[in-house]
Design a protein around this nucleic acid. Structure first.
Lengths: 209, 209
DNA sequence: TCCGCGCATTGATCTCAATCAATGCAGGAC
DNA sequence: GTCCTGCATTGATTGAGATCAATGCGCGGA
């Protein structure tokens, strides 16, 4: 699917389980003509499995950001297989649990931190995760990073100027950590907010009854 | 467990899967001495099954609000049973999916609506769900409703005065719908935000292979 | 080459909700 | 009864971030 494609809209009943194989998809809350980014899905992941397994309408709109490849599985067939294949069921459970934890982290980030702290922690995390000596690049357009951090483009732009005082200088899409110690002091990363969130499914076990 | 008890704290590794049988539990994001309500769990429900099944530390603190009864299941035993019992796995999946959708609704409510709209929709929902002619009572202390709506006590108090203009008058813990039509016009309920979110697990099916 | 569109930046202003502060009020302990 | 403590209300002030507006920039298309 090319960028900009709508995969589904909110209030639709899922016709397919969508497995994102490559690319990137925006999940947006919609109200009238307003859209707000709720989640940014990166491959590989399922798109809102919750709606599919619970037979409920989507709560969000899905739009392709980068060229995306998807596996489309008839929703009813998917549910039947989840209901008959224990290993798949465990895998979907792990995936769903991970998505839940990402939402919780996002909520904590938005509610416990100021805009400047969110920006600072976001940049610092990029720096810390990059290989030493590698140039650090913003992984997304600034408007999307701003959405992820729950602020407007304009505020993001201004905040980038503000965090120079704390050792983080952004020029274009390059992050220059002028003073990492200062940045760490001002923007302490919390693994319970900033850490990665990966799923490791349980192994199915033979039922000894 | 009596009110105020801590069931677990954030960053702890789950020792038990906790099934809330009766009562009410607050799930709080913590930063230094600040606490922010992320979810209010009502019986019957699992407390953060995501952390248990994914073998990851809790992201939130759990504190009993009303006297609560809990079933405590050794975490490893619980995971083993989820891994061996397909029906349980499906039930946990449905529960986890429901909790995910509640988080998404919460995020949409906070990001797409103003404080006044959140308050108005909350009150209107209470009114609409009450039996006709029944007096409508706030189901929680005002400070907790305010937390759920992502505002402070003071703002909540002031906003209650403001929404009188739209036909919703609150006195003590009683909601008086002076003008339901006006309220509906100003605060349109959206089932994708305000609707209930209930789990109906899939039925396990014999694997035909 | 020129045009047009979307993103980014910068400035000016506004506003919603938080914060700080003081008072009132109800229920529980003793 | 009296004290205490936590919740609620009300007022005054502040401030973080949004909004509105204008300009610049980069890129793709014909």
């Amino acid at each position: 699917m090319p960028p900009g494609s709508f995969l589904f809209d909110q209030s639709e009943t899922p016709a397919f389980a969508l497995l994102l194989v490559s690319g990137c998809v925006e999940l947006l809350g919609v109200r009238d003509t307003e859209e707000t980014l709720i989640e940014l899905v990166r491959a590989p992941d399922f798109l809102l499995p919750a709606a599919v397994v619970n037979r409920q309408p989507y709560l969000l709109r899905a739009r392709v950001l980068n060229e995306a490849s998807l596996v489309m599985i008839q929703a009813e067939a998917f549910r039947n297989t989840v209901a008959s294949d224990h290993a798949l069921c465990l895998a979907v459970l792990a995936c769903q649990a991970t998505q839940f934890r990402r939402q919780v982290k996002r909520a904590k980030n938005l509610q416990l931190r100021s805009a400047e702290e969110r920006v600072g922690c976001y940049l610092l995390r990029l720096v810390e995760e990059a290989a030493l000596g590698e140039p650090v690049k913003l992984p997304l357009e600034k408007r999307l990073i701003a959405s992820q951090l729950g602020i407007t483009r304009e505020t993001f732009s201004r905040t980038l100027l503000a965090v120079v005082r704390h050792g983080l200088r952004v020029e274009g899409d390059t992050v220059n950590p002028d003073n990492i110690a200062a940045a760490r002091a001002r923007f302490p990363l919390d693994p319970l907010i900033d850490g990665p969130e990966a799923a490791i499914p349980l192994q199915a076990k033979r039922n000894r009854q």
